[in-house]
């Protein structure tokens, strides 16, 4: 909650690092953390969603294989897709949040080419015209 506090506009890097440390410290939390983040990413408050996306981006590079495996699953990717698609929550999210989600997903297709599900999800978004360029 502290790392995604919407009342603080700028990133709270100390809290984000503490969150990563806690995820690294305990096996259970590294599969639970993505779900917590997905919930925050889908927040109606733009600042909270943007903070959660920054925490997600930081965790993916700092929180080990279990966390990585969880975000590379459709179970998590679908939560990001719901933010983008008008059929789900897409109409409620600002362009700022949606372009940030696309930016992160695209970076994962580049950094983790071996993750087939990330690539499939991104290809589907392009095919549906949800991701332009």
């Amino acid at each position: 909650d502290k790392a995604t506090d919407p009342s603080i506009p700028e990133e709270n890097w100390e809290c984000i690092q503490r969150f990563c440390d806690r995820v690294n410290a305990d096996k259970e939390s590294s599969s639970l953390a993505p779900r917590l983040l997905a919930h925050k990413i889908q927040s109606p408050q733009e600042v909270e969603a943007l903070h959660a996306l920054t925490v997600l981006e930081t965790c993916v590079n700092n929180c080990g294989e279990r966390f990585h495996n969880e975000i590379a699953k459709f179970r998590f990717l679908n939560e990001l897709i719901k933010v983008l698609c008008p059929k789900y929550y897409g109409t409620w999210f600002s362009e700022k949040v949606k372009s940030r989600v696309i930016e992160i997903m695209f970076s994962w297709t580049v950094w983790f080419p071996q993750e087939v599900k990330i690539r499939d999800a991104y290809q589907m978004l392009k095919k549906q015209g949800i991701v332009k360029e």
């Binding site: 699953k73 179970r75 679908n78 897709i81 599900k117 949800i130």
Partner: peptide, 15 residues
């Protein structure tokens, strides 16, 4: 100890 590896997942959302 064998670390538990959870491969459960769901299908890609149909948009």
């Amino acid at each position: 100890t064998v670390s538990f590896h959870d491969d459960s997942d769901e299908d890609l959302l149909n948009v």
